[in-house]
Nucleic acid binder design. Structure first.
Lengths: 216, 216
DNA sequence: CATGTTATTATTGTTGAACAATCTAAAATC
DNA sequence: GATTTTAGATTGTTCAACAATAATAACATG
């Protein structure tokens, strides 16, 4: 994404608002209103919308408008299926000397500091960085980019669920054990641990979605 | 992608031209000229360009313009890395009763007919459909969509290499053996066969690229 | 002639107004 | 209440214009 152009800046701003849950799931974004709110012309906004729909954050319905993506349980299932395949592939590709593995270790340390400080949102952010870094073990720009889309969609879900969800439950011990297993070169062990994490994480989201649906 | 809107129609037209190699790798697409050629306004074309760049077929350089993607050897390496991870995941997820497996068998039969008729372009198209169908074993819409991008980029490469490349070399026997192995439930065997295919296919492209580079 | 600087030109990025096409909501009719 | 018609709102697209940027051409200097 280009730094500097008006379109790309506004795209980033809207993306952040989406991730922070400032738009409701399924909410319609009116071109007139959004263009005015961000002080850009409607034409430029249409380019922005093309960018954000290609990232899965918005859904463009011809002649009806653009809507905030509303990942449902099927989407969560798909996202975790994608994560499983990509992250398993990353672990199978892992080497003990890969820089991403060292970075994962650093991120575990960072998460411990944040947890000690009680900064749970920060812990959640680091957890995502941990998994993004795991995918970097593949050395594939395309997989990195696509995984970024996965993370964006997950953050959209978290944003919709709000602060009460505690979805950034600390997975620090699990992440640390996983790094240690990889450092030993035990791929099979690491795959097991990843599976456990993904299952637990996915269940957490489904449960939170269920709670939210009950409350509405 | 929307059916019917002007922008989406032109996007499809440009996409086809790209895949067919009608634009040179790295060629700059001038907004004025392309808009005129397709009889659409520059604003609409900019939307189209946003769509096609997000598909990896075009590269947008701020303030300088939009260029035809020019997948180099690094890109081929990445594409095959991606294929390996995704398609291995697909095979690991495969079940004997999955509809995609039956479809893969049908596609092998189709390829045999096309080969008997000497229709090598058709064989190549079926080969791609075979691999796309393999990915459907994952039951993941996102992976299907991303794999479609992989195929588009590969076709862009084939388009650039031209007819002389014979990259649609028949892999019929390999595909047939792979289906048979999967139908037996022999995942490990199928993974081996896939690895062999991917290595051979990738080498073929690198060799063809090398030949073309020598000729220019 | 080679190199650096300046000026000019071409193109991209953006804006705003306008109109066509489509959808949605309100009103009229049965 | 259900259906049809009408009006209003919004999206899709076009056009013209201007600002900003990069590329190219022209000029000056060693």
């Amino acid at each position: 994404m280009e730094e500097g152009s008006r379109a790309s800046k506004v795209a980033a701003q809207i993306r952040n608002k989406l991730i922070e849950g400032e738009f409701r799931p399924g909410e319609k974004l009116s071109e007139q209103q959004v263009a005015q709110a961000f002080s850009i012309s409607r034409n430029t906004l249409r380019e922005v919308f093309r960018l954000l729909t290609s990232q899965g954050l918005l859904v463009h319905v011809p002649n009806r408008g653009v809507f905030v993506a509303s990942p449902d349980e099927a989407a969560i299932i798909d996202l975790y299926r994608v994560r499983s395949i990509i992250q398993r592939g990353a672990i199978e590709a892992a080497t003990k000397t890969h820089p991403a593995l060292a970075k994962m270790r650093l991120l575990v340390d960072e998460a411990k500091c944040a947890a000690a400080a009680g900064d749970w949102p920060r812990v959640g952010t680091i957890n995502m960085a941990f998994h993004r870094t795991m995918v970097e073990l593949c050395d594939s720009q395309r997989l990195n980019d696509w995984f970024e889309l996965v993370l964006a969609e997950l953050r959209l879900v978290f944003g919709h669920l709000g602060d009460g969800a505690h979805l950034h439950e600390p997975y620090i011990a699990m992440n640390e054990a996983l790094v240690t297993t990889l450092e030993k070169g035990d791929i099979a062990g690491a795959l097991d641990q990843l599976g456990t994490y993904l299952t637990k994480s996915e269940r957490g989201i489904h449960a939170a979605l269920h709670r939210t649906r009950h409350r509405t």
